[in-house]
Amino acid sequence: MAALVSFLKVSEDGALVRYRFGDDPDACTRYLTVNKESRRSSPDDGRTDYAFVKASRRISALREERGVWPDRGMSAS
């Protein structure tokens, strides 16, 4: 089974980064928030499911690679 999760940064301030994410890049309907200091993310709807984990891990990996929070991206498996 293939899985695709897209994400798009919607806001960033000194403490938090917020992303929209979902399986359709044109209709990402869920949100997650990352605490910049702890690097912990949480789904705004409380559902810690596969899509959330994939988006969260990819965002974190890109942050480590580039040194900045990514504006957008995707994770495919």
Rank of each mutant, 00 (worst) to 15 (best):
M1C: 02
A2Q: 13
A3Q: 13
L4Y: 13
L4G: 14
V5E: 04
V5I: 14
F7V: 04
L8P: 01
L8M: 10
L8G: 09
K9V: 07
K9D: 03
V10A: 07
S11F: 08
S11V: 08
S11D: 10
E12M: 05
D13G: 05
D13N: 11
D13K: 08
D13A: 12
G14P: 03
G14K: 11
A15C: 09
A15T: 11
A15P: 02
V17E: 11
R18C: 07
Y19D: 02
F21A: 00
F21R: 00
G22S: 01
D23W: 04
D23V: 14
D23Y: 14
D24A: 13
P25T: 06
A27C: 12
A27G: 11
A27Q: 14
C28H: 06
C28W: 02
T29R: 12
Y31C: 03
L32S: 01
T33K: 02
T33F: 02
T33Y: 00
V34D: 02
V34N: 04
V34M: 05
N35P: 01
K36L: 08
K36F: 03
K36M: 08
R39V: 02
R40P: 00
S41C: 08
S41I: 15
P43V: 00
D44W: 05
D45H: 03
R47L: 02
T48L: 14
T48S: 07
T48F: 15
D49T: 13
F52Y: 15
F52C: 02
F52Q: 00
K54C: 04
K54S: 03
A55M: 01
A55F: 08
S56H: 02
R57Q: 14
R58K: 09
R58I: 07
I59V: 03
I59R: 10
A61T: 13
L62K: 15
R63M: 04
R63E: 08
E64F: 01
E64M: 06
E65G: 03
R66Q: 06
R66Y: 12
V68F: 11
W69A: 09
P70Q: 01
D71K: 09
D71E: 02
R72Y: 12
R72E: 06
G73L: 02
M74K: 12
S75G: 00
S75N: 07
S75E: 14
S75C: 07
S75L: 09
A76C: 07
S77V: 10
S77C: 09
S77A: 12
